Simulated assay, not measured.
Amino acid sequence: VRWDHIAKVGGTIIILMGVANIAEISTALIAGGLSPATPVAAIRWGTRPQQQTTRCTLGDLVSRPLMAPSVIVVGEVAAENLNWFEQRPLFGRRILVTRPTEGASRLAGRLRDLGAEVVSLPSMTVTEPADGGVGLARLAAEVAPGDWVVLSSRIAAQRFLASLADLRSLGGIQLAVVGPGTAEVVIQAGMTPDLVPAVTTAEGLLGSFPSATQTERSVVWLPQSSLAPPVLSEGIAARGWEVRVVEAYGMVRAESWPDPHEILEGIDAVTCMSSSAAAAVHAAVGSERLAGKCYSIGPSTSATLVELGVQPVATAEHASLDGMVECLVWAFGESDPQE
């Protein structure tokens, strides 16, 4: 390539795969008429969480310790302060997402948009309910006007709605959801939840749930995970309701994990989105390796971590995907990822 000729063309010059020959290239560009003071930016691993930008002048470029792969930009545009990518709040952070595959992509996408490198390693696998769907079929057939259906997760909402032959069968039935994520599923189906608690936890839902009145029928249907704790069922029953628990889906621990050392290599944060996920991760890697890394979605999950001998670094203010993202941004917002 006649770099001395390219120097006479003017405008911005983009050099690809030029690190090994950068001394020859820069010398030729200066010989072709470019000023040694011409701004240069070398971007390594561009658009990835490991992105690094080196800024200098053309005359000083040869003295900089550049590494491949780098894109080298020569021209006045290189002097512009276009480092928005590196200023994202989670830039340079490596975060382990332990949600089941069904929910991992939403969280992972949000974290990547904020600059994080995401490692997805589902701690749990969603399976069909142990009864083969008999309970969901019974719910769909027997739910009646005046009943409540309480949905405590997005998956529970999806499984419940999929079991219905006609959404019009829900006329006169009231729907309660644990938070905005679950509400989104219901709204996308063309319905409006009757109850969305301000505090997005099981305890928050209980605090907003009405007591049963003296009517002929006081039934609450609770489609949920096979591993769901009894907080909701017992709390609603204590308010005078007849609670009918339905296994909407099974949850089992992942059958195999990589070596514990490999799992947490370079990890800055482990997201614990439920008590069952926290227990599964702990079973795989142990308390010592989780120290100083676990971020909890809510008080119940934090309590589980503490029982397992792991002190959570922080607990989300709101027990939701958005709450976890906000928690991580808050935790890492003021610190340097290189520290």
Rank of each mutant, 00 (worst) to 15 (best):
V1Q: 08
R2K: 12
A7G: 03
G10D: 08
T12F: 01
T12E: 01
I14V: 15
A20W: 02
A20C: 04
A23D: 15
A23I: 03
G32Y: 02
G33S: 09
A37S: 11
A37T: 12
T38Y: 01
T38E: 03
P39V: 06
V40L: 02
A42L: 10
R44L: 09
R44A: 15
Q51K: 08
Q51N: 13
Q52W: 03
R55S: 08
T57W: 07
L61R: 05
P65I: 04
P65V: 05
M67Q: 13
M67N: 08
A68C: 05
P69T: 09
S70V: 05
S70H: 06
I72K: 01
G75P: 04
A79G: 15
A79R: 11
N83H: 10
W84Y: 10
F85V: 13
Q87H: 15
F91K: 07
G92L: 06
R93T: 00
R94N: 09
I95Q: 00
V97N: 12
V97F: 04
T98E: 02
T98F: 03
T101E: 12
E102R: 11
G103D: 06
S105G: 07
A108K: 12
A108I: 10
G109I: 09
G115C: 10
A116Q: 13
V118S: 11
T127I: 01
G133V: 11
G135V: 03
A140T: 01
A140W: 09
A144P: 01
P145Q: 08
G146A: 06
V150A: 14
L151Q: 13
R154P: 03
R154W: 07
R159C: 01
L161G: 09
A162F: 06
S163G: 08
A165C: 00
A165F: 00
Q174A: 15
A176Y: 12
G179Q: 06
P180L: 09
V186T: 06
I187T: 15
I187F: 02
G190N: 09
G190S: 13
M191A: 14
P193N: 08
A198R: 06
V199N: 12
V199W: 01
T200K: 00
A202H: 02
E203Y: 08
S208K: 09
P210R: 11
Q214E: 12
Q214L: 11
R217D: 09
V220S: 11
W221G: 05
L222C: 11
S225Q: 05
A228P: 11
A228T: 12
S233F: 05
E234G: 00
V243G: 03
R244M: 06
V245G: 00
V245A: 13
V246E: 04
M251H: 00
H261K: 07
H261T: 05
H261D: 15
L264S: 10
V270I: 10
A280E: 03
A280Y: 03
V281M: 15
V281C: 07
A284Q: 09
V285I: 14
E288T: 14
K293T: 02
P299Q: 13
T301W: 05
T301Q: 04
S302A: 15
L308F: 08
G309W: 10
V310L: 12
V310K: 11
P312D: 13
V313G: 13
A316M: 06
A316Q: 02
A316Y: 04
H318G: 01
A319D: 12
D322S: 13
D322F: 10
G323F: 13
V325L: 11
L328S: 07
L328M: 02
L328I: 10
S335P: 02
D336Y: 08
